[in-house]
Amino acid sequence: MAKGEKARNNGIDPTWPKVAPGEHPVSELAADRQGALSPFGDVTFPLENVPYVHPETEINK
C-alpha cells in the first residue's frame, strides 16, 4: 500500500448492525406517537393528582 493510500475503515462504526444484502438497519424505535416516550410507561393526562412536593428551604438565622 502506498503512503497516500490509507485503509478507509476509520469512518466505519464497528457497532453498526450487520444485515442481509438489500436490507436496511433500523436505528429508531417504532412507536405509535411522535416525540419522546415516557420513561414512566403509559400515562394518561391530565392526572388526578401529582405525586410531587416542592422542596422548601429553611434559612438558618
Rank of each mutant, 00 (worst) to 15 (best):
M1H: 09
M1R: 12
M1Q: 11
M1L: 11
K3G: 14
K3S: 15
K3I: 12
G4Y: 13
E5L: 07
K6S: 15
R8K: 13
R8C: 13
N9Y: 10
N10V: 08
I12M: 05
I12E: 11
D13Q: 05
D13M: 01
D13I: 02
D13C: 06
P14V: 01
P14M: 02
T15I: 02
P17S: 03
K18V: 08
V19D: 03
V19A: 00
V19W: 03
A20R: 00
A20G: 00
A20Y: 01
P21H: 02
P21Y: 03
G22H: 02
G22Y: 01
G22K: 01
E23D: 07
E23M: 06
E23F: 06
H24V: 12
P25R: 00
P25E: 03
P25M: 00
V26E: 15
E28M: 10
E28H: 15
L29P: 09
L29G: 07
D32G: 09
Q34F: 10
Q34P: 10
A36S: 14
A36F: 13
A36W: 11
F40T: 04
G41I: 02
G41E: 02
D42Q: 10
V43W: 04
F45T: 05
P46F: 04
L47H: 03
E48A: 08
E48I: 05
N49G: 05
V50L: 14
V50I: 10
P51E: 09
V53H: 09
V53R: 09
V53L: 10
H54C: 06
H54V: 07
P55R: 05
P55D: 12
E58L: 13
K61Y: 14
K61T: 14
